[in-house]
Structures are given as structure tokens and as C-alpha cells.
Amino acid sequence: MNESKLAKAADTGLRLQGISHSFSDGRGRATDVLAGVSFEVGAREFVSLMGPSGCGKSTVLGMVAGFLSPEQGDVRWHGERVTAPDAARGVVFQKPHLYPWCEVYDNVMFGPRALGRERESRDLARDLIAEVGLEGFERHRPYELSGGMQHRVALARTLVNRPELLLMDEPFAALDAQTREEMQALLLEVWQRHRCTVLFVTHDIEEGLLLSDRILVMGHRPGSIRADISVDFERPRDETLVFDQRFVDLRSSVRTLFRKDSS
């Protein structure tokens, strides 16, 4: 760990310590999915959790969100143990999971209303809807929108709560290549403006490198952190970064790491 990382760790928001977990298959047999996962994410840092599918990265994210508790070890957010979901830790899922009985605006206002902050959040909600490029669609129902548009609403719905920590579980994995690129560019843009801490789960190496300050590479069965790689390309970034020689080099070394693990 270099000095800047130590400095970040000192005011760290998120800290995972020795997380181990197993799932039961219902017939008494348990499969270890995580073994001793530990890492920290500094304030306003964009960290990607990467690894082959089935390595338990979504499980880790679910624990940080408070959806499930680890069997061993603990997840701490600002020093407090995470036991339940909280609006300070916003989640963007792989699918948008919008509420079809609510219009776009009401989907975005779901969080503020639940928290009793409706009045002071109205302007922010409108701004965010415009920011994700959906001005004029406030009164549409989710099923009247395309998949990409639904993902934009989901992003706005999470950001309107001003979460300190944004958890994203392969949010663009189900999108077609072009929409995915658009969403990545949008996320970079939005993140540069709002600057919350992000923990981003992906199995796409290019996506992880393009977006993050740091990537954590997980190995599988049982999952653990194999490498912690800092990605220090200057910001603001855009999709042209993928043609940069340093990017290409880093990508191939991460790919080698992936391969070594899956063989």
C-alpha cells in the first residue's frame, strides 16, 4: 500500500474484514462462496470488483448493501456494522427493477417520499431526469421506455437520495454494446458531477478499467481478492481511453490474471 492509499484508508467509508460465506443447497451440502475477503474503499473512490462469473462478487455487493449478512467477518460503513439496507448506500441492480405502477417521475421520487423528503427533492429529481436525458418522459410508464432508458431512470432513482456510497451490480451487463457504451459515458459524466463513492461489480475488464480508480480482482470457488490494481488514468475520461497504449497494456495484464485464475 502506498502513502496515498493509506491516507484514503484513514477516512475510509467502507471496510470489509475477513468475510467468509457459504450457501446451502437445501440438502445439507454447503458450498463455500467467499473465503476471507477483505478490502477498503476510500471516500469518493470509484472501485470495481471484478472476476469471472460465479466468484461471489454480487454476494459481496449484497452484503455491503445490507441484503444479507456474512457468516464470518464484518462489513463496516463509517465504522458501524452493516445489518440492513439504508438509503445512504444506494443500489443499482443489473435490471432496472422500476415500479410499473409508477410513472418515471414517481419512480425517481420513490426514495425521497419514503424518507419524507419530498418537498426538498423535487428540483433534484427534475434535474436528474434531465441529466440522464429523459426530460419530457416524466409522465411515461417504465414499460413505455426502452431498456436503456429504463436503466437511466434506475440511475436517477438511486442518485436522487444523494447516497454517499453507490453500489452497482453489473448494471450494464444486459444491455447491447452501443447502449452499454452510452450508459458508461453517462455514468462517468454523472459521477464526475456528484462524486460519491462507488463500488461497481462487473466481469467486463474494459468497463472496469474505463470507469475505476482501482480494481479488485476476485478469484473463484471460494472467492477471495487476488489483486488490487490502481488505475490512474487522468480524468475526465471518455471512451477513447480504450485506444491508449497504457490502457491496452493494463487490460492484457488483467486478462492474464483472469485466465490464470480460471484454469
Partner: peptide, 29 residues
């Protein structure tokens, strides 16, 4: 009811009763 709808609501700050009223019942309707 899709569990992810409920998880999404919880992580958006909704309590038990709010989830029941605004997610579970409309989703089960």
C-alpha cells in the same frame, strides 16, 4: 412479488409499512 422490487425499495430508504403499501400491494394487485 419479485424480491428485487422489495430490495430496491429498502435500499431507497423505505420501511416495512411503506414497502407493503407502495410495493407489495401494487405488485400483488
Amino acid at each position: 412479488v419479485d424480491r428485487n422490487w422489495i430490495l430496491a425499495a429498502q435500499s431507497l430508504g423505505a420501511g416495512r409499512l411503506y414497502v407493503l403499501r407502495r410495493v407489495t400491494i401494487p405488485a400483488a394487485l
